[in-house]
Simulated assay, not measured.
Amino acid sequence: MGEIIGVVERIWRYPVKSTGGERLDSVEVDPRGLAGDRLYAVRDGEGRFGSGKTTRRFRRMDGLLRLSARLGHRLDAPVLLDPLGSPVADPTAFLRAYLGREDVELAREDAVSHFDQLPVSVLTTATLGWLRSVLPATVIDERRFRPNLLLRTPPGTPPFTEDTWCGHPATTRTGLTLHFLRASERCAMTGAPQPGLPHAPEILRTIATHHDNRLDALAEVTHPGRLSVGDELRLV
């Protein structure tokens, strides 16, 4: 049946790219990824999406991590929450005032993907535990790395075990199949402040020094299915 590489401890969905996410007990997963994940983004007048970095597709917009969002079951328009956790009545008007930009709007994904790379990110408790051991004075939380899945790994699992999954598929009891391809290259968002997590630039420096600036395992979805907290993930 394959080796059990971990048990799903937490599931995270990020309805609006680069803002805080929502924890789920279960979710449908299709070839695009977790239903509703990064379905919306803050888009500027040039068509670039708010992010922690500036590239051809993305524009750095500081402060987005202080916001969060949640979706209903029908994946209709998200509820955007301000830094105090209160719902915003008019997301686009709020974002224009909050960011000091008149050219931004909350936009649903169309022809251009909102994902940086691949649709599903998985991080292990083994890797998080290592990071806590080398940065004992820093608040380490998986929210800094924005995984879709936090996987509870067996005792004794070495850090960065995610690297060994690359090139392999993994399945759950429902038949959901992920195919791991590579790790995320990290940016300044790992140390950016967000509710409950202070500014911590030492996190990115540590990942760069010890692991070539990469952390997690990125996967594509090769067979859809439902995913729930407590599901075992088996490497094929």
Results as ranks from 00 to 15, higher is better:
9 E>K: 03
9 E>F: 05
12 W>I: 02
15 P>Q: 08
22 E>R: 09
22 E>P: 04
23 R>E: 15
25 D>S: 09
25 D>L: 03
33 G>T: 04
33 G>S: 13
34 L>I: 08
35 A>I: 06
38 R>C: 15
41 A>T: 11
42 V>N: 13
43 R>D: 03
44 D>P: 02
49 F>H: 08
50 G>L: 11
53 K>C: 11
54 T>K: 08
56 R>A: 12
58 F>I: 03
62 D>A: 11
64 L>V: 10
65 L>E: 10
65 L>P: 05
69 A>S: 15
71 L>T: 05
72 G>D: 15
73 H>T: 08
74 R>V: 06
76 D>G: 14
77 A>M: 12
78 P>Y: 14
79 V>D: 06
83 P>G: 09
84 L>V: 08
87 P>I: 14
88 V>G: 11
88 V>C: 03
91 P>S: 07
95 L>H: 05
96 R>Y: 09
99 L>I: 05
101 R>Y: 11
102 E>S: 10
102 E>L: 12
102 E>R: 10
105 E>P: 07
106 L>D: 12
106 L>I: 15
108 R>T: 14
111 A>W: 04
117 Q>A: 03
121 S>L: 12
123 L>H: 03
132 R>W: 12
132 R>Y: 03
134 V>N: 00
134 V>G: 00
135 L>G: 08
136 P>Q: 15
137 A>T: 12
141 D>M: 05
142 E>F: 02
144 R>H: 10
145 F>N: 02
145 F>V: 07
145 F>A: 00
146 R>Y: 01
146 R>M: 01
146 R>E: 12
150 L>N: 00
152 R>N: 15
153 T>M: 08
154 P>M: 02
164 T>F: 09
174 T>Y: 01
174 T>R: 05
176 L>I: 08
177 T>H: 01
180 F>S: 02
182 R>H: 12
195 P>G: 13
197 L>M: 10
203 I>L: 13
205 R>F: 08
208 A>L: 04
211 H>T: 07
213 N>D: 00
215 L>E: 07
217 A>F: 13
219 A>G: 00
222 T>S: 01
225 G>W: 10
225 G>Y: 05
226 R>Y: 07
226 R>S: 08
228 S>M: 08
230 G>D: 14
231 D>Y: 06
232 E>R: 00
